[in-house]
């Protein structure tokens, strides 16, 4: 059996066993998509469902997004087929008290690089069902890849523009936005029961897909994710109009790293940089 086939068998075995043993009542993973190049989220509740699990470089959705769904919360313990980005999102959700870490297990998928999104990505499945605490040390080394310059190539390109050109760039990109909110709805960290975009007393953000409404939405979303975005890219991949949303999110990530020495997704006990008050804060932004 080729190496990948053995890994898939291991993945299915872990999922099947997790359900059979009663360790979890739901395993969320991926099944074959309806078209080539796509994978579909799969909710396994019976051991036999595990036979439909697959994994490849097309399994790009961040499954941690489902943990805050009420239908999923109804389960006592849930296992996720989790490449690194999924686990990072779980860290964020635990850190923000949205998910109880004792009720989540990971079937951890390790890829050599941070994202593991290439079509022919080499992947291996960790031994056994893991808790978040068991998983974290096995991925700690990936932290070094978070801030490599290649990751910020697009950001650097935008930064090199004059402010006028930057405005034009974003005006052109935001103009494509149709306000479908796919970016928000696939984002594991956009879990607000009532999003600011849905609040109307007052109407913080124009709901219309005008320049004003589109700027407001996309910028406010990036701000709300500053220091929280785990850089999985799910929003950008979901966007039907191909907005370069990660330019904004990665810029925020870069600023937070520079200012606070913080990268989201590694330490569920860390203080969130933008919601933590410190007496020795230089408060440079208040003039």
């Amino acid at each position: 059996m080729p190496a990948e086939g053995r890994q898939l068998e291991k993945l299915r075995h872990l999922a099947r066993h997790a359900l059979e043993s009663g360790a979890v009542s739901l395993v969320i993973g991926f099944a074959e998509g309806t078209v080539p190049g796509r994978a579909a989220p799969l909710f396994c509740t019976a051991p036999a469902d595990a036979d439909r699990l697959i994994f490849d470089g097309y399994c790009t959705l961040n499954l941690a997004n489902y943990l805050t769904r009420p239908e999923v919360r109804a389960h006592q313990t849930v296992a996720l087929v989790a490449r690194h980005a999924v686990a990072k999102a779980v860290v964020g959700l635990v850190q923000e008290s949205q998910v109880d870490p004792t009720r989540v297990r990971l079937i951890a998928i390790h890829c050599p690089d941070l994202d593991g999104l290439q079509q022919d990505v080499a992947w291996t499945v960790a031994d056994g069902l893991q808790t978040l605490d068991e998983f974290l040390p096995t991925a700690a080394h990936l932290h070094d890849q978070e801030l490599t310059p290649e990751r910020f190539a697009a950001v650097a390109q935008v930064e090199s523009k004059s402010s006028h050109d930057r405005w034009d760039h974003f005006a052109r990109e935001f103009d494509k936005c149709i306000k479908c909110y796919a970016c928000r709805n696939v984002c594991p960290l956009c879990y607000c029961e009532r999003c600011i975009a849905d609040k109307n007393q007052p109407q913080w953000i124009d709901t219309s897909s005008t320049q004003r409404g589109n700027f407001a939405w996309n910028i406010v979303r990036a701000f709300h994710l500053a220091g929280r975005c785990i850089d999985c890219g799910a929003c950008e991949r979901a966007c039907p109009m191909d907005l370069p949303l990660m330019e904004l999110n990665r810029k925020m990530k870069k600023v937070v790293a520079e200012r606070f020495g913080y990268v989201a997704g590694y330490d569920p006990k860390a203080d969130l940089p933008l919601v933590t008050f410190k007496k020795d804060d230089p408060e440079e932004f208040i003039k």
Partner: peptide
């Protein structure tokens, strides 16, 4: 419906790219 829609994240992507979906909102801004 539950089996099918459990994975649906509730965005407007499908309806907005659809040529026949015509539902609309009226808002004052």
């Amino acid at each position: 419906w539950r089996q099918t829609a459990l994975r649906c994240v509730g965005c407007g992507c499908c309806t907005f790219v659809c040529p026949t979906c015509h539902c609309f909102d009226l808002v004052d801004e």
